[in-house]
């Protein structure tokens, strides 16, 4: 049978059994706007992330470079893959390059070989954060490759405090996600982990063994 015929058969079988559609449930009303102020919300996100074994740091926008350098030297990061979205920040890049080697993730390709074998950490921006579950939201794009937050053993993510919202629902509605999503949206809430062997939690399953969140307090 051809693809088209199979498709037709499945849809016909479903149509033959279909009754009147039910009323559409309103999931949005379920998620109440929280009354919390932004700093409290951010604290909650940071607490959740810490409890989930992510490492959390705070920095002002001005000190970001030195904060990242401290983190990298602490983790003995020598080769850092930096997302292109951060390369336009020349002050930051200059700061970083004083201490470590930066992998030129250029605007045309990701060096997969290096990412898998020699890169010590990946540095990315984040689209936002979710306080309810302690979650980072990353949108893929021309300057935001997906592998930097996945393949190297350490993922360092920069989160702007103003981008933290209460819930995933909140973010979806505010930003009108239903009108169009990027190639990939990924929510990250801890380092990669597994409990597949005798329910024993182990970190660094296939993704980063360490997740470092740098909260930038932008006032």
């Amino acid at each position: 049978m051809s693809q088209q015929a199979i498709r037709q058969r499945i849809l016909e079988k479903l149509r033959a059994a279909q009754a009147a559609p039910l009323a559409c449930p309103d999931a949005e009303v379920f998620y109440k706007e929280s009354m919390e102020d932004q700093p409290t919300r951010v604290e909650r996100l940071m607490l959740h992330m810490k409890n989930a074994m992510a490492e959390v740091h705070r920095s002002s926008a001005a000190d970001l470079g030195s904060c990242l350098n401290r983190i990298c030297s602490d983790k003995q990061v020598q080769l850092l893959a930096v997302a292109p979205e951060l390369l336009s920040d020349s002050a930051l890049c200059e700061h970083l390059s004083q201490q470590l080697q930066m992998l030129p993730v250029t605007q045309c390709h990701v060096d997969q070989e290096a990412l898998f074998n020699t890169v010590d950490a990946g540095l990315t921006l984040t689209h936002g954060g979710i306080a309810e579950t302690g979650t980072l939201v990353l949108w893929s794009g021309d300057e935001s490759p997906r592998m930097l937050s996945l393949v190297p053993p350490v993922h360092i993510a920069i989160l702007h405090a103003s981008c933290v919202v209460e819930s995933l629902m909140d973010m979806m509605i505010r930003e009108k996600w239903s009108t169009g999503l990027p190639t990939n949206v990924v929510l990250i809430s801890s380092p990669s982990k597994t409990a597949d062997i005798q329910q024993t939690l182990a970190y660094g399953a296939h993704g980063p063994k360490q997740l470092v969140v740098v909260l930038v307090e932008d006032r």
Binding site: E132, T135, T183, N184, V185, V186
Partner: peptide, 14 residues
């Protein structure tokens, strides 16, 4: 409360 990763895929590489 949420898994480590929630992955939402909407297209191949653009």
């Amino acid at each position: 409360a949420i898994t480590t990763y929630v992955n939402m895929i909407s297209s191949p590489r653009k």
